[in-house]
Computed example of a mutant assay.
Amino acid sequence: MKYAIVTGGSRGIGSAICKKLAQETNYHILINYQSNKEAALATLKEVEEIGGKAEIIQFNVADHKQVNEVLTQWQEKNPTAIVEVIVNNAGITRDGLFMWMPQQDWNDVINTSLNGFYNVTNFFIQKLLRNKYGRIINMVSVSGVKGTPGQTNYSAAKGALVAATKALAQEVAKRNITVNAVAPGFIKTDMTSDLDEKELKKLVPANRFGEAEEVAELVNFLASKKAGYITGEIININGGIYS
Rank of each mutant, 00 (worst) to 15 (best):
Q23G: 08
N111C: 04
L21G: 10
V142A: 00
P205G: 04
V120T: 11
G116L: 11
E46R: 05
N138F: 07
V83W: 01
L30M: 09
K19Y: 14
E48C: 11
N180S: 05
N32P: 07
V87F: 12
L21K: 01
E217Q: 06
Q151Y: 06
P184G: 11
E24K: 12
Y154G: 09
G232K: 02
G228I: 04
I56M: 08
S193V: 09
I230H: 13
L30R: 00
K37H: 12
A16F: 13
F209H: 02
I177V: 11
G96F: 15
K65S: 10
V140G: 08
A223D: 13
M1P: 14
N36H: 14
F124W: 15
S224D: 10
Q75A: 15
K226V: 02
I187V: 14
T93C: 06
H64W: 01
I234D: 03
G134C: 07
I31W: 02
T152E: 07
I57M: 10
E76Y: 01
N238M: 07
F124I: 13
L218S: 05
Q151S: 01
Q103Y: 15
F117H: 01
N236C: 10
K198T: 15
L129Q: 15
K226C: 00
A216R: 12
L71R: 07
E214S: 03
T178E: 13
G147T: 00
E213I: 07
P149K: 04
A90M: 07
I13G: 10
N153V: 02
S155P: 12
N238L: 11
Q103T: 15
N220S: 14
N111V: 05
V219N: 09
N89P: 00
I13N: 03
F221M: 10
T189H: 10
P79K: 14
T231P: 13
N111L: 10
V204L: 04
E211V: 01
I125D: 05
D63K: 07
C18P: 05
M101G: 02
K132N: 15
P184H: 09
K225V: 15
E48V: 04
K65P: 05
F59C: 04
A22C: 03
N60P: 06
L129H: 07
F59Q: 03
R11W: 03
L129T: 15
K174I: 02
E84D: 13
Y133C: 02
I136K: 03
K198N: 14
I235H: 09
A39I: 11
W74A: 11
G12P: 05
S35R: 14
V140S: 15
P184Q: 05
A81K: 08
E76N: 09
E197M: 02
F186Q: 04
K127M: 06
K198Y: 15
S141F: 02
N236A: 10
A169Q: 09
N236E: 08
T121M: 03
M191A: 00
T43V: 10
E76H: 03
T43R: 05
G51E: 04
V204Q: 08
